[in-house]
Write a protein that binds this DNA or RNA. Structure first.
Lengths: 206, 206
DNA sequence: ACCTGAACACCGTTCAAGT
DNA sequence: ACCTGAACACCGTTCAAGT
């Protein structure tokens, strides 16, 4: 008996429904095939109808990014353990990006456009208020997003066809596959925190 | 009197000319407006003519990326100074990316698609053959490309109009502007090399 | 060897008008 | 409040045919 919907047979969509459908379509067809027209078709609606719910495709993808990043939070954490928190969050971010097709690319551009908050920046600010937290959040976020983007593109290329083996770059000069390098890089960055602090926070005022 | 061009009045283009024009157009209009049709117009040619010189737009952008990255090399370097080489190369990469409009975005996808070699990986392999070099190259490359992409997008957004100030994310939860954070992050990552080595290269065989 | 002309199968977005 | 219909101004790519 809500006054909102006088005729329940007319299926009206909310913005959440549109974002749901977009994320679902992303997982099924990938970012290159995720068009407003295709999404509209999926929802049984004209393409122009989408523009009542979202201002642009970019804004829609930003909402999709928010959904993908929603689970990247720190439940409980030792304050003072910036290293531990950074590594945990880095792994969680990677997990979330890998959970959706082309997740890294979608999130990368939303982040770059400033349409979505950086989850590591927000979380690390709570465990450590020092300037170090922001620097660490930056380093880890860019590394994880970059490496996962690289990984997912490679996966898509491999899936599409191994026929491109001649144009592709030799393995030794390409960026490394992240599978084993990921933990190493995380350890490298996290391990840099202590010496960097010793160098930087030595001088309090001037 | 080269047999190649019987009539000098017919301006024939080489692939290099196409890539030149693409890089020039990129700097003038930016990646979103760099279309094959627009590029063809610039060259005084039909769009289909471009496909005699390049197989696809992606391949063209990979060639553009190669040009952008060509100057990211190490002239002379202390072997054993992985830290120093990494920081120098990171700064040089950032310089090259900033030298062209949307340089980071173009390079980012060419790198992800594996259509272009990673310059840091290649250069660092020469100063240090250990596994550390690859991990460091990965960490620095992804950080620099990511942070520069972010910076250039923000610049484009600001240039287009400050009217978007309401939709934009609050400054504190956005990724930091890289201007001062860049050197800090480079120091953080480079500073992680020594402790990481102490941890990892302790065990030689098993 | 290098390019034209014409087509194919798409895009994102706007906007008056409908219910 | 939510959506349709129709249009605008584009895309990347292919391919027979020309010179």
């Amino acid at each position: 008996m809500t006054p909102r919907d006088p005729n329940p047979r007319v299926a009206r969509r909310s913005k959440d429904d549109v974002v749901d459908a977009a994320l679902d379509l992303l997982d099924r067809v990938g970012l290159p095939d995720l068009s407003m027209r295709r999404l509209a078709e999926e929802l049984g609606v004209q393409p122009s109808a989408l523009y009542w719910h979202v201002a642009s495709k970019q804004e829609l993808l930003a909402s999709v990014s928010s959904r993908i990043l929603a689970a990247v939070i720190l439940r409980a954490s030792d304050p003072d353990d910036l290293e531990g928190a950074a590594v945990t969050l880095g792994r969680r971010l990677r997990d979330r990006l890998l959970a959706h097709r082309d997740g890294a690319e979608v999130v990368s551009s939303s982040l770059a456009l400033g349409l979505v908050p950086s989850p590591l920046h927000e979380a690390l600010r709570h465990v450590d208020g020092s300037p170090a937290a922001a620097v660490v959040a930056d380093a880890i976020t860019h590394y994880v997003v970059g490496v996962t983007f690289h990984e997912q593109q490679r996966r898509a290329a491999d899936a599409w066809g191994a026929a491109a083996s001649e144009v592709a770059v030799t393995p030794e000069s390409a960026l490394r596959p992240a599978d084993d390098g990921f933990e190493a890089a995380m350890a490298l960055i996290a391990g840099g925190i202590a010496p960097w602090r010793a160098d930087t926070e030595r001088v309090p005022g001037a």
